[in-house]
Each structure stands twice: as structure tokens, then as C-alpha cells.
């Protein structure tokens, strides 16, 4: 059984069929990428998995469990973490606190214990801190530990958001355009991290990305979508050479950009 099974998923906003019958599945330990021109419905698929949108039809199974029966905040408990295309960090908190917020699902104390700061709260805090420090070391974020998000450069924020997702200790991580707006060197770091996530942390990765170099480098399989429908599924090379995919990109200015890997 696949880790994530998406079947005939659709969501319509009035007349806009943002996602219209997409099916795919992500195996355990796989890096699965979704590509497609702007407005294809890629982020909307993520938002459906996160339960931020209610699907019009279709099903999403994670480890065999139907997600549609759960509220948005109960998705994280299953082991699904995500980042957002337009970084959604807690701007007025430090990097450390942002990562600690990622540990919320693992909290073992309630607000009464927290108010009194019972010894258990301290023990728990130490454990969370340990985990967060591991993530910071992995992503080389130590230098920014006590910095406010609001003052950080764009590239660092992108990494902090990945860090917050990793701090959750997930099974599946959803990355929405992790390399957009990053320099070539920074994208290369992202590629290495994704490799490590899979190899060392045993994570499965579902990624939306325009940078074809990154996609080719890390993906096991690639799904191309356009206008809310899937066009092709296969290896990065197969999908890129698919005539339908090329047609979908034609006329869309992200084609050249995607080819050159700077979108």
C-alpha cells in the first residue's frame, strides 16, 4: 500500500476547476514531484491534503486513512508536514521559537501544567529543544537561532520553513516550490537536503517545483499537471519529453524559465 494515495481529487471554486480529477500516489521513501505551469493547481493539491480546502470529490488516503474525515489541525498528527509557496512563518518570533512551534504535535503537557511550569514541562522543553537543535544543525541555521524572522533574508526564511516542517518529525513532507527565489548555490543545498531527508531520515517527499534541474536531480517520479488535470506521470526525462506537457508549457512564459531552472 502506498503512503499517500490520491484518487480522482477535485475542487471547484465557483466556475474555476482548480483541481479536476487528479490521481497519484507516493510510495514510502519516495521523492515525488509535481510540475506544471502557473495556475495549474499544484498548490491547491497541497491545500487539499492539508485540509485547508474541502474537496468537491475524490479521496486522499494516508497510510490507508481517509483525510477528509479530519479537521485541518489533525492532519499533522498523522505525520504530514508542509511548507508554503509564500512563506508562512511566525514573523515576530525567533528562528528557535518557530522551530519549537513545529514540535506542537508532540507536546505532552496541557495549559494548566504550562502555567505552573511543572518539572515535566521543563523536561519536555529540553527534549523539544534537543530535536530542534538537530534540525538546525542539519540545515545550518545555528547562526540565526535567536534572530527574529522579520529581519531575515528571503533565502534563510525558506530554509527556516523547511526546518519548522522537519521539527515536526513527519513521515511525509510537502514542499511547495522550495527553491523558488533561491540562488543556484542555495538550490543545490536544497537538493542535498532532500537527498538526506530521504536517505538518513527515511522521509517521503512530495514537492512542487519549477526548477527542472532540481526536479531531475532528486525526483523518483514526476507528475505534470495543467488546468487542474494530470498530463503525464513518469521519470523526469519521460515527463519532460511528453508532447502534451510541452504543449501545456508552450505559450506559458514559465516554459523557458523552467527549462533554464531559474523560475
Amino acid at each position: 500500500m502506498s503512503l499517500l494515495q490520491v484518487t480522482d481529487l477535485a475542487v471547484h471554486f465557483g466556475g474555476v476547476k482548480a483541481v479536476d480529477g487528479v490521481s497519484f500516489d507516493v510510495e514510502e521513501g519516495e521523492v515525488f514531484s509535481i510540475i506544471g505551469p502557473n495556475g495549474a493547481g499544484k498548490s491547491t493539491i497541497f491545500n487539499l491534503i492539508s485540509r485547508l480546502y474541502e474537496p468537491t470529490r475524490g479521496s486522499i488516503l494516508f497510510n490507508g486513512e481517509e483525510l477528509s474525515n479530519r479537521p485541518a489541525h489533525a492532519v499533522a498528527d498523522l505525520g504530514i508536514a508542509r511548507t508554503f509557496q509564500n512563506i508562512e512563518l511566525f514573523d515576530h518570533s525567533t528562528v528557535l521559537d518557530n522551530l519549537l512551534m513545529g514540535r506542537h504535535g508532540h507536546r505532552a503537557t496541557n495549559w494548566v501544567q504550562d502555567l505552573l511550569f511543572l518539572p515535566k514541562v521543563r523536561t519536555e522543553e529540553r527534549a523539544h529543544r534537543q530535536k530542534v537543535e538537530e534540525v538546525m544543525e542539519f540545515l545550518e541555521l545555528e547562526a540565526y537561532r535567536d534572530k527574529m524572522i522579520a529581519g531575515l533574508p528571503y533565502g534563510v526564511r525558506k530554509v527556516v520553513e523547511i526546518g519548522r516542517a522537519l521539527a515536526m518529525g513527519p513521515k511525509l513532507i510537502l514542499l511547495d516550490e522550495p527553491a523558488s527565489g533561491l540562488s543556484v548555490e542555495e538550490s543545490q543545498d536544497v537538493a542535498f537536503w532532500i537527498e538526506d531527508m530521504r536517505r538518513d531520515m527515511g522521509l517521503s517527499v512530495l514537492m512542487v517545483e519549477h526548477d527542472m534541474r532540481l526536479v531531475t536531480q532528486v525526483s523518483d517520479r514526476v507528475l505534470a499537471v495543467a488546468n487542474g488535470r494530470s498530463l503525464a506521470l513518469g521519470s523526469a526525462a519521460e515527463v519532460q519529453n511528453d508532447p502534451e506537457v510541452q504543449a501545456a508549457y508552450l505559450g506559458s512564459d514559465s516554459f523557458l524559465a523552467a527549462e533554464e531552472g531559474v523560475a
Partner: peptide, 21 residues
């Protein structure tokens, strides 16, 4: 403590608060 951090999370971004559980 975690409770206080969850308050700040809700204040600064409800969508990511949800995504964090």
C-alpha cells in the same frame, strides 16, 4: 511553554498554525 507559543502561532499565521497541528 508550548501553550504560549501556540498563542503566538495563531496570532501570526492561522494557516501554518493549522498545518502544525
Amino acid at each position: 511553554s508550548p501553550t504560549g507559543r501556540s498563542f503566538l502561532a495563531v496570532r501570526d499565521s492561522e494557516v501554518s498554525a493549522r498545518a502544525l497541528g
